[in-house]
Protein backbone atom coordinates (compact mmCIF):
# COMPACT_ATOMS: atom_id res chain seq x y z
CA UNK A 1 0.00 0.00 0.00
CA UNK A 2 1.22 3.49 -0.88
CA UNK A 3 0.27 5.75 1.93
CA UNK A 4 0.83 9.38 2.83
CA UNK A 5 0.06 10.72 6.27
CA UNK A 6 -0.57 14.33 7.21
CA UNK A 7 1.47 15.83 4.38
CA UNK A 8 2.00 19.58 4.35
CA UNK A 9 4.07 21.30 1.72
CA UNK A 10 5.21 24.79 0.84
CA UNK A 11 8.05 25.82 -1.45
CA UNK A 12 9.66 28.11 1.09
CA UNK A 13 9.10 28.95 4.73
CA UNK A 14 7.48 32.34 4.25
CA UNK A 15 5.35 31.17 1.41
CA UNK A 16 1.79 30.08 1.87
CA UNK A 17 1.21 26.35 2.16
CA UNK A 18 0.32 24.68 -1.11
CA UNK A 19 -1.56 21.96 0.71
CA UNK A 20 -1.93 20.93 4.30
CA UNK A 21 -2.49 17.71 6.19
CA UNK A 22 -3.25 15.42 3.28
CA UNK A 23 -3.91 11.71 3.89
CA UNK A 24 -4.10 9.29 0.99
CA UNK A 25 -3.96 5.52 0.61
CA UNK A 26 -3.58 3.62 -2.63
CA UNK A 27 -3.91 -0.16 -2.58
CA UNK A 28 -2.22 -2.46 -5.09
CA UNK A 29 -4.43 -2.90 -8.15
CA UNK A 30 -6.43 0.19 -7.33
CA UNK A 31 -6.74 3.20 -9.65
CA UNK A 32 -7.43 6.40 -7.77
CA UNK A 33 -8.38 9.61 -9.56
CA UNK A 34 -7.49 13.14 -8.49
CA UNK A 35 -9.27 15.88 -10.47
CA UNK A 36 -8.94 19.63 -10.11
CA UNK A 37 -7.87 22.74 -12.00
CA UNK A 38 -4.25 23.57 -12.70
CA UNK A 39 -2.09 25.65 -10.40
CA UNK A 40 -3.39 24.29 -7.11
CA UNK A 41 -0.63 21.86 -6.25
CA UNK A 42 -1.64 18.59 -7.86
CA UNK A 43 1.73 18.21 -9.57
CA UNK A 44 3.53 19.08 -6.35
CA UNK A 45 1.62 16.41 -4.47
CA UNK A 46 2.58 13.97 -7.23
CA UNK A 47 6.25 14.87 -6.74
CA UNK A 48 5.98 14.43 -2.97
CA UNK A 49 4.36 11.01 -3.37
CA UNK A 50 7.10 9.83 -5.70
CA UNK A 51 9.95 11.19 -3.58
CA UNK A 52 11.03 14.10 -5.82
CA UNK A 53 10.16 16.60 -3.07
CA UNK A 54 10.27 16.25 0.68
CA UNK A 55 7.20 17.39 2.62
CA UNK A 56 7.70 19.75 5.60
CA UNK A 57 5.34 17.68 7.72
CA UNK A 58 4.15 14.10 7.29
CA UNK A 59 5.52 10.93 5.73
CA UNK A 60 5.13 8.89 2.60
CA UNK A 61 5.20 5.13 3.22
CA UNK A 62 5.33 2.38 0.66
CA UNK A 63 4.25 -0.97 2.07
CA UNK A 64 4.99 0.35 5.55
CA UNK A 65 8.50 1.68 5.02
CA UNK A 66 9.66 5.13 3.86
CA UNK A 67 10.55 5.75 0.22
CA UNK A 68 14.06 4.54 -0.60
CA UNK A 69 16.68 7.04 -1.75
CA UNK A 70 17.68 5.06 -4.85
CA UNK A 71 15.56 2.79 -7.02
CA UNK A 72 12.00 3.72 -6.32
CA UNK A 73 8.95 1.42 -6.44
CA UNK A 74 6.84 4.54 -6.93
CA UNK A 75 7.38 6.10 -10.36
CA UNK A 76 6.11 9.42 -11.58
CA UNK A 77 5.13 9.90 -15.23
CA UNK A 78 5.22 13.51 -16.34
CA UNK A 79 2.87 15.52 -18.52
CA UNK A 80 5.69 16.43 -20.92
CA UNK A 81 7.70 13.33 -21.78
CA UNK A 82 10.30 15.44 -23.60
CA UNK A 83 11.52 16.79 -20.25
CA UNK A 84 11.80 13.30 -18.83
CA UNK A 85 14.37 12.04 -21.33
CA UNK A 86 17.93 13.06 -22.07
CA UNK A 87 17.79 14.87 -25.43
CA UNK A 88 21.28 13.61 -26.36
CA UNK A 89 20.38 9.93 -25.99
CA UNK A 90 18.79 7.69 -28.55
CA UNK A 91 15.58 5.91 -27.69
CA UNK A 92 17.27 2.55 -27.15
CA UNK A 93 19.46 3.93 -24.39
CA UNK A 94 16.53 5.78 -22.82
CA UNK A 95 14.43 2.62 -22.69
CA UNK A 96 17.17 0.62 -21.03
CA UNK A 97 17.80 3.13 -18.27
CA UNK A 98 15.44 1.50 -15.79
CA UNK A 99 16.27 -2.12 -16.44
CA UNK A 100 16.18 -4.78 -19.13
CA UNK A 101 13.25 -4.23 -21.47
CA UNK A 102 10.62 -6.86 -21.65
CA UNK A 103 9.95 -7.30 -25.40
CA UNK A 104 6.36 -8.29 -24.82
CA UNK A 105 5.78 -5.14 -22.84
CA UNK A 106 7.18 -2.88 -25.54
CA UNK A 107 5.05 -4.72 -28.08
CA UNK A 108 1.94 -4.09 -25.99
CA UNK A 109 2.76 -0.41 -25.95
CA UNK A 110 3.26 -0.37 -29.70
CA UNK A 111 6.94 0.55 -29.59
CA UNK A 112 8.43 0.15 -33.05
CA UNK A 113 11.94 -1.07 -33.67
CA UNK A 114 12.80 1.83 -35.97
CA UNK A 115 12.19 4.28 -33.12
CA UNK A 116 15.16 2.90 -31.23
CA UNK A 117 17.82 4.70 -33.26
CA UNK A 118 16.06 8.04 -33.18
CA UNK A 119 16.58 10.99 -30.90
CA UNK A 120 13.70 12.10 -28.65
CA UNK A 121 12.93 15.21 -30.72
CA UNK A 122 12.32 12.98 -33.73
CA UNK A 123 9.40 11.22 -32.04
CA UNK A 124 5.94 12.60 -31.36
CA UNK A 125 4.68 13.31 -27.86
CA UNK A 126 2.53 10.19 -27.81
CA UNK A 127 5.39 7.96 -28.94
CA UNK A 128 7.71 9.46 -26.35
CA UNK A 129 5.14 9.02 -23.59
CA UNK A 130 4.93 5.30 -24.45
CA UNK A 131 8.71 5.11 -24.16
CA UNK A 132 8.60 6.75 -20.72
CA UNK A 133 5.88 4.37 -19.54
CA UNK A 134 7.71 1.26 -20.73
CA UNK A 135 10.91 2.53 -19.12
CA UNK A 136 9.12 2.98 -15.80
CA UNK A 137 7.33 -0.36 -16.07
CA UNK A 138 10.61 -2.20 -16.62
CA UNK A 139 11.91 -1.23 -13.21
CA UNK A 140 10.59 -3.00 -10.12
CA UNK A 141 7.61 -0.73 -10.12
CA UNK A 142 4.61 -1.19 -7.83
CA UNK A 143 2.93 2.21 -7.81
CA UNK A 144 2.50 4.66 -10.66
CA UNK A 145 1.70 8.36 -10.35
CA UNK A 146 0.33 9.66 -13.65
CA UNK A 147 0.38 13.46 -13.74
CA UNK A 148 -1.76 14.54 -16.72
CA UNK A 149 0.12 12.02 -18.82
CA UNK A 150 -2.19 12.21 -21.83
CA UNK A 151 -3.48 15.77 -21.67
CA UNK A 152 -1.19 16.87 -24.51
CA UNK A 153 -2.35 13.99 -26.74
CA UNK A 154 -5.27 13.45 -29.06
CA UNK A 155 -8.18 11.29 -28.00
CA UNK A 156 -7.17 8.25 -30.03
CA UNK A 157 -3.61 8.21 -28.76
CA UNK A 158 -4.90 8.82 -25.24
CA UNK A 159 -7.26 5.87 -25.42
CA UNK A 160 -4.51 3.67 -26.93
CA UNK A 161 -2.02 4.48 -24.18
CA UNK A 162 -4.53 3.94 -21.40
CA UNK A 163 -5.71 0.63 -22.81
CA UNK A 164 -2.13 -0.66 -22.91
CA UNK A 165 -1.54 0.65 -19.42
CA UNK A 166 -4.77 -0.75 -17.96
CA UNK A 167 -3.78 -4.26 -19.13
CA UNK A 168 -0.45 -3.94 -17.38
CA UNK A 169 -2.02 -2.51 -14.20
CA UNK A 170 -4.44 -5.40 -14.11
CA UNK A 171 -1.75 -8.01 -14.74
CA UNK A 172 0.75 -6.72 -12.19
CA UNK A 173 -1.74 -5.35 -9.68
CA UNK A 174 -0.16 -1.90 -9.69
CA UNK A 175 -1.52 0.90 -7.55
CA UNK A 176 -2.12 4.02 -9.64
CA UNK A 177 -2.92 7.66 -8.98
CA UNK A 178 -4.39 9.41 -12.03
CA UNK A 179 -4.15 13.19 -11.93
CA UNK A 180 -6.20 14.92 -14.60
CA UNK A 181 -8.36 17.96 -15.21
CA UNK A 182 -10.56 15.80 -17.42
CA UNK A 183 -13.37 14.45 -15.27
CA UNK A 184 -14.63 12.17 -18.01
CA UNK A 185 -11.24 10.48 -18.27
CA UNK A 186 -11.08 9.99 -14.50
CA UNK A 187 -14.57 8.55 -14.50
CA UNK A 188 -13.50 6.07 -17.19
CA UNK A 189 -10.36 4.91 -15.44
CA UNK A 190 -10.73 5.13 -11.70
CA UNK A 191 -12.47 3.07 -9.11
CA UNK A 192 -12.21 5.83 -6.52
CA UNK A 193 -11.86 9.61 -6.72
CA UNK A 194 -10.28 11.88 -4.10
CA UNK A 195 -11.03 15.62 -4.01
CA UNK A 196 -8.17 17.47 -2.38
CA UNK A 197 -8.36 20.39 -4.72
CA UNK A 198 -11.33 22.55 -5.52
CA UNK A 199 -13.13 21.06 -8.49
CA UNK A 200 -14.56 23.39 -11.10
CA UNK A 201 -15.83 20.66 -13.38
CA UNK A 202 -15.53 20.32 -17.12
Amino acid sequence: MLECRGITFSYDKNHKKLFQDIDLKINPGEIVGMPGPSGQGKSTLAKVLSGYLQPQVGTVLVDGSPLPAGKNPVQLIFQNPEHAVNPHWNVRKILNEGGIINPELSKNFGIQNFWLDRFPHELSGGELQRICLVRALCSNLRYLICDEITSMLDALTQAGIWHSLLQEIEKRQLGVLVISHDNALIARLCSRVVHFFEDTGK
Partner: peptide, 11 residues
Protein backbone atom coordinates in the same frame (compact mmCIF):
# COMPACT_ATOMS: atom_id res chain seq x y z
CA UNK B 1 -15.36 7.29 -30.26
CA UNK B 2 -12.07 7.37 -28.35
CA UNK B 3 -13.13 10.34 -26.25
CA UNK B 4 -13.65 9.42 -22.61
CA UNK B 5 -17.14 10.95 -22.78
CA UNK B 6 -18.02 8.60 -25.63
CA UNK B 7 -16.91 4.99 -25.61
CA UNK B 8 -13.13 5.42 -24.93
CA UNK B 9 -12.31 2.72 -27.44
CA UNK B 10 -8.98 2.37 -29.13
CA UNK B 11 -8.46 0.60 -32.44
Amino acid sequence: AALPTNSFTSP
